[in-house]
Design a protein around this nucleic acid. Sequence first.
DNA 1: TTGAAAGCGGTACCAT
DNA 2: ATGGTACCGCTTTCAA
Lengths: 372, 372
Amino acid sequence: MAEKVTIADVARYANVSRQTVSNVLNSPEVVREETRRRVREAVRVLGYRASQAARQMRTGRSRLIAARIEPAQQDGINGSVFDRFLHGLTESAARAGYRVLLYTADDHDAELATFDDLLGVYVPDAFVLTSTDYGDPRAAWLLEQRIPFVTFGRPWGVPPDQKYPWVDVDGAAGTATATRHLLAAGHRRIAFLGWPEGSGVGDDRRSGWARTLAEAGIGPDELSELDHRTEDGVPEGAAAVTALLAAGRPVTAVVCVSDSLAIGALQAGGDVAVIGFDDTPVARAVGLTSVSQPLGEAAARCVALLTDMLDGDAARRRSHGDAAPPDDDTGAPANTSVNQGAGARGPSRTTTSGDSPAHVLLEPTLVHRRSA
Amino acid sequence: MAEKVTIADVARYANVSRQTVSNVLNSPEVVREETRRRVREAVRVLGYRASQAARQMRTGRSRLIAARIEPAQQDGINGSVFDRFLHGLTESAARAGYRVLLYTADDHDAELATFDDLLGVYVPDAFVLTSTDYGDPRAAWLLEQRIPFVTFGRPWGVPPDQKYPWVDVDGAAGTATATRHLLAAGHRRIAFLGWPEGSGVGDDRRSGWARTLAEAGIGPDELSELDHRTEDGVPEGAAAVTALLAAGRPVTAVVCVSDSLAIGALQAGGDVAVIGFDDTPVARAVGLTSVSQPLGEAAARCVALLTDMLDGDAARRRSHGDAAPPDDDTGAPANTSVNQGAGARGPSRTTTSGDSPAHVLLEPTLVHRRSA
DNA sequence: TTGAAAGCGGTACCAT
DNA sequence: ATGGTACCGCTTTCAA
């Protein structure tokens, strides 16, 4: 294995000074064409790659994005959602010249401590937060420290003076689509199996169902009769549907806030149509129709938002050395301006109302299987 | 937010040289008690944390462990296994003063290229490889470059001259336990639903079943009649069991190489007892008895093996600065010597036969649910 | 357009 | 036991 090739080696080989090499890498336009060629050739021949540590010492940028890896939560069924997001994040980050650094934390306090630790030692350039919800202190902390971050998830119940960029999937749109699908199939008695009130994500998903039924002429009374709340879990879902079926006017279909509840609903038997949320592996396994989040896209948008903050206007300078030989412009949708109008790019809305930070709301899709 | 505190600030505050501060941090025993105290106090007051980048420049160690995050594979049911491992890895690594750096790669070639890239830029101190199997070129590459690494998974079909440390779970022991459980429950016709021959993991799991039935007096002919091979997947599992039930002498129980196949087996109905492998979320959701791998323990062992290589005999020096205030000795089982005899620590075997690298074989457990 | 020199924040080596 | 100094590899500033 070749010993470490430094910028000095390249300079020597190309008969230029170290600075010129650095310039070729970081500000090519300032170097004469022919010199540039010679240096690039030297880089290629020697297999030179800039040391991130050395670069970080000068620039202060680590090209690291920190993300928490969550333990398998609850029954683990919904865990795969986060994992798929994380995979997309790693992929998009790499395209943009960043790497993902993992950390764990059992609760918010531990996480803040980890932030502090990480920032003192590895100094990630940014954080990606997931599973944000009411009373989450993490965003405020990062905001105060002026550390760049994005959340995957809207700022539920966050004080209006706390503004930060986020990416999310429109849960209400998802359940609305699911409900319309059931209406179109002839169902009228369509229940909603949701979590107890107070969860941003859960309430949002409920609203799409409620709105759609209301539009279809279902009155408020019947609506609340069809609205069922329970903790997440397979047995909970089964119990809920059993109850729903035993009611005076039984339901014929159920829209669920999660695949866990939906699996339970399916197990309860009866002849109800069931639609879940998140399109987890279980859904496919048991043939459950489910609302699917575009997680890869969401991750890519998170990275795009971050690079917009981090690379600033220098973003176009292709500043991450030569690690990516093909000067592809086919990379991540990093150039998706945060100022684009609504719907400029597929089923999503990127907004920059006034001076508030950019955010992206993505549309989920319904994956049809035999359960509905 | 306090501006960055450097070692010079600490030195000034404590009235010593930078070198002495460094010594207190890295070789405390060389500093006089009272000086040490003063420096430690300064560190505390100032909130000093050593910059990893600067340290890396001198020492060449990045305190980064690279691991690949895999995309949701196949039907994704087994994906959670890897994710749980990754979570454990992150946790154990943090305890040992390391962080996990993520990367992706679509195939072996891309992964080798990523190795090269990573080593040139972020320079991880070690790699953790998963899903190793026949013809996997990654280990050979890392071995040749003399990069420290561990695999989670035995070196299936690796040339005997390629030796490296690994951690694995004894799949055969798992299926043996499953099979014994079914035998004890009175079953005689116990089929095995496995993958096509040629997969190290799959063949290993099959062998545990075969061995146990043979010991119970089942002849070779009946054994091969009970041995069913198919691609992984829920529908495949259902089809296989349907076939098995239609046979002349139907089976009453099935041991499966994966939860995916087991779910299928369950769906096929009939009155067969089913046992899966990996105890994925789906298993819990549908009440499937399944063999569970001790993934957290496996991850901890991987980290222990790595730190043994990386920190060498300095391992005991608690050398990762002050990031971990509580000088806990309750941390990872990092002190589990690689030379301990068999079974010294719970249900696992750590071996160092001759001069071959250390490896650990962990015992899985059977999680009982209503499917068997 | 190119080069020389300083300095980022640590650690290793050598003196004291 | 403690301090001085060089140096890790890179980028930035300033001169040539």
